[in-house]
Simulated assay, not measured.
Amino acid sequence: MPRHAKNTIFILVILTIFLLVVIIISSDPNSKIHSVYKVLSVPVQAVQKGASNLATGIKDRFEAIGSYTDLINENKRLKEEVDKLQGYKNRNEQLETENQELRALLELKDYYQEYDLIAANIIAKDVTDWYNEFTLDAGTQEGVYIGCPVITSKGLVGIVSKVSAHTCKVMTLVDEQNVIMARISRSNELVRLRGMTPENYEYLLKLDRISASSDLYVGDLLVTAESGGVYPKGIAIGTVIEISTIAETETRYAIVEPLVNLPKISEVYILSLPEKARITEDKE
Results as ranks from 00 to 15, higher is better:
Gln94Phe: 07
Asp116Trp: 07
Thr197Asn: 13
Asp126Gln: 05
Glu107Pro: 00
Gly147Ala: 03
Leu108His: 03
Pro149Ala: 11
Leu205Ser: 02
Glu189Pro: 08
Tyr145His: 08
Ala120Gln: 02
Gly143Glu: 06
Glu93Pro: 09
Thr167Gln: 14
Gly155Ala: 04
His166Leu: 00
Tyr145Leu: 09
Ala120Asp: 03
Val170Ile: 14
Gly158Ile: 12
Ser164Trp: 00
Asp110Ile: 01
Ala165Tyr: 01
Val191Ile: 10
Val150Asn: 01
Val174Pro: 02
Leu95Pro: 03
Glu142Asp: 15
Ile146Lys: 10
Gly139Phe: 09
Gln94His: 07
Thr128Lys: 12
Asp116Leu: 11
Thr97Gly: 13
Ile122Tyr: 04
Asp126Phe: 02
Glu81Ile: 15
Glu93Ile: 15
Leu207Ile: 05
Ala119Gln: 10
Asn178His: 14
Thr152Ala: 05
Lys89His: 10
Glu133Val: 01
Cys148Phe: 06
His166Tyr: 00
Val157Gln: 05
Gly195Ser: 07
Val163Ser: 04
Arg103Pro: 00
Leu105Gln: 13
Met181Cys: 01
Val160Met: 07
Pro198Leu: 06
Ile118Phe: 01
Leu117Ser: 02
Glu189Ala: 11
Tyr145Ala: 06
Tyr201Ile: 00
Ala138Tyr: 05
Ala120Val: 04
Ser153Phe: 03
Ala104Gly: 07
Ile151His: 03
Val150Arg: 02
Val179Ala: 13
Glu81Met: 14
Met196Ala: 08
Trp130Tyr: 10
Ser185Phe: 14
Thr128Ile: 04
Lys169Gly: 00
Ala120His: 02
Leu207His: 07
Val191Asn: 04
Pro149Val: 12
Met181Trp: 09
Asn99Arg: 13
Ile151Cys: 00
Val191Met: 10
Ile159Glu: 09
Gln100Ser: 10
Asp175Pro: 02
Thr97Cys: 12
Asn188His: 08
Val150Ile: 02
Tyr203Asp: 06
Gly87Arg: 05
Leu156Pro: 08
Ile184Val: 11
Lys206Thr: 09
Ala165Leu: 09
Val191Ala: 04
Arg192His: 11
Val170Asp: 06
Val144Asn: 05
Met171Tyr: 12
Val82Met: 13
Arg183Val: 14
Gln86Trp: 07
Gln177Ser: 15
Lys162Gln: 14
Tyr145Asp: 01
Asp126Arg: 04
Asp116Ser: 12
Lys125Ile: 08
Tyr111Ala: 14
Gln86Met: 14
Val163Gly: 04
Glu199His: 12
Val174Cys: 05
Lys89Cys: 03
Tyr131Ala: 09
Arg194Trp: 09
Leu108Cys: 05
Ala165Glu: 11
Met171Cys: 14
Thr128Phe: 12
Gly195Tyr: 10
Leu117Gln: 03
Ser187Pro: 05
Lys89Trp: 11
Thr197Phe: 14
Leu136Val: 11
Val174Ile: 15
Glu202His: 13
Asp83Pro: 07
Thr128Met: 11
Val144Trp: 06
